[in-house]
Design a protein around this nucleic acid. Structure first.
Lengths: 80, 80
DNA sequence: TTAATTGCGGTAATATTTAACCGCATTTTT
DNA sequence: AAAAATGCGGTTAAATATTACCGCAATTAA
């Protein structure tokens, strides 16, 4: 991660938070359904972690959505 | 990554390889379009890396697809 | 007004990815 | 046949995520 991925991380976190709000799940509820700590999910939502593939899968489990949904948002000029 | 995510990594790699084959891109071609080394993309395809969010975005750039496409495959019993 | 829930920051040690090379065997192209 | 392209394994240092706690301030519920 030599480049600056703070926008990527922030946008991802915002999206995760929206998914969680949609389901009205608390951080602890999500954590209870996957192998993640609630305080760390909070950090992910607040754009502090550049999480790994395995963590994305765990999050999908906790949020009860398909993993691709976690990346299903507008990336603007970040790609292409 | 205390759990065993080898299946997750392997399946992801297989999917990436399929996406690349669909476009008929070589490893070096993909690498030229993003900030990744071709030898490391090879390792990703062969399930040797549990890559991070930023790397997924780079891969999407290199493959010219939306990031969610990289997770758009069947996870079977890995989730839910 | 108690009690419970919620979001979230801090921390430490450990484990892991990552970057950026090299070179080689095989396939493909000229 | 010669040259180029391709896939891929190996490597080491350095950067980074992760784990798994604790506790607190504020909101919500009983």
């Amino acid at each position: 991660m030599s480049k600056d991925y703070s926008k990527i991380k922030a946008d991802f976190g915002t999206h995760i938070r929206k998914l969680r709000d949609t389901k009205n799940y608390s951080l602890r509820k999500v954590a209870s359904q996957c192998d993640l700590d609630d305080s760390n999910i909070s950090k992910i939502e607040n754009g502090k972690f550049n999480i790994q593939l395995s963590t994305i899968i765990e999050l999908a489990k906790g949020l009860e959505v398909h993993p691709s949904k976690l990346l299903d948002y507008d990336f603007g000029s970040d790609i292409i």
